[in-house]
């Protein structure tokens, strides 16, 4: 076999490709026509699209909405959820002093996590950092990611907690030299899509990305615009000077009778894979 390349049978190639994150598998269609055909025909997520999942918290019946971004923000699905809990905001990861809870926004079910990582520096800065909640589609793991902000918004390491596996937070080093390390743009939320958690660098046009499976941090230049188009508007975040378009994104989501509510939005990736996120989150 050596020297002739590895002509794995189709069935084996499918098994291997299915272990990759969706985005990577789709990218590997660039390898050759055989791989393209196998990915297209044998791995079932061609229809992958990003949608907006919005929660509107109101007295007397909160609502969740799913939007199709492709058709210009048309409402695809809307449902009221019977949450008895009173909350002003929907956050999958909530913090209060040193306690951290993960909340299912639909049922209100909460899960307490071990104490949050602490550092005298963050306390001095009164900057507990941001939390993001991520799901990795091929491993089925849920992870909470803490992005601490130190002096000058420098991020030296992330803390990651895998639900159902970890008993304490793990540090994931962020080594993204040569540009003086990573920073975090506090004005813009971190967001998790399709097995990655993304955030914006504070001082350069970089999008930072944590692979939720391998837990390594990489980054990309020149993707800022794409990030803002695809993510920023959806989350209502505002990476410097983007406030107006973020507000426009909000208007798109809310009509009059909803405008009293508190809105939280998430980018939501829909695939045809049997993702268990929805079923286990609502179980």
């Amino acid at each position: 076999m050596a020297g002739e390349g590895y002509s794995l049978p189709d069935d084996l190639l499918v098994l291997i490709l299915l272990l990759l994150p969706t985005s990577l598998r789709r990218r590997f269609r660039l390898v050759c026509k055989r791989w393209r055909d196998i990915v297209n025909e044998r791995t079932p997520e061609l229809q992958i699209t990003t949608k907006i999942l919005a929660f509107i918290s109101q007295h007397g019946g909160s609502r969740a909405l799913l939007f199709d971004t492709k058709s210009g923000g048309r409402r695809r699905l809307s449902w009221k959820y019977p949450c008895s809990h009173q909350r002003s905001n929907v956050a999958l990861v909530g913090t209060s002093f040193s306690t951290i809870t993960v909340t299912n926004p639909i049922t209100g079910e909460t899960q307490a996590l071990p104490p949050a990582p602490r550092s005298p520096e963050w306390e001095q800065m009164r900057a507990p950092g941001k939390y993001a909640f991520g799901y990795h589609p091929t491993t089925g793991r849920y992870k909470v990611v803490h992005i601490p902000c130190g002096r000058r918004q420098v991020v030296n390491a992330l803390q990651v907690f895998t639900l159902g596996v970890d008993t304490s937070w793990r540090a994931v080093p962020v080594d993204t030299t040569p540009d003086g390390g990573a920073t975090y743009n506090r004005l813009c939320d971190a967001i998790s899509v399709d097995g990655w958690t993304y955030w914006l660098d504070a001082f350069s046009a970089r999008v930072m990305a944590l692979d939720l499976d391998g837990e390594s941090v990489s980054w990309s230049w020149g993707m800022m615009r794409l990030y803002q188009h695809k993510v920023d508007d959806l989350t209502g975040g505002g990476g410097g000077g983007r406030r107006s378009s973020a507000a426009k994104g909000r208007e798109l989501l809310m009509n009059e009778d909803e405008s009293n509510g508190v809105l939280t939005t998430f980018a939501y990736v829909e695939t045809l894979e049997p993702i268990q996120a929805s079923s286990s989150l609502s179980s």
């Binding site: 985005s23 660039l30 390898v31 899509v193 990305a209 695809k230």
Partner: peptide, 24 residues
């Protein structure tokens, strides 16, 4: 050890669909 059997145009077409993959 796979040979690239795409034309430039075919590659471009697939790249267009990959907007969500954060790679360049």
């Amino acid at each position: 050890n796979i040979k690239n059997d795409y034309t430039k145009e075919e590659l471009e077409e697939i790249r267009q669909e990959l907007a969500w993959a954060f790679y360049d």
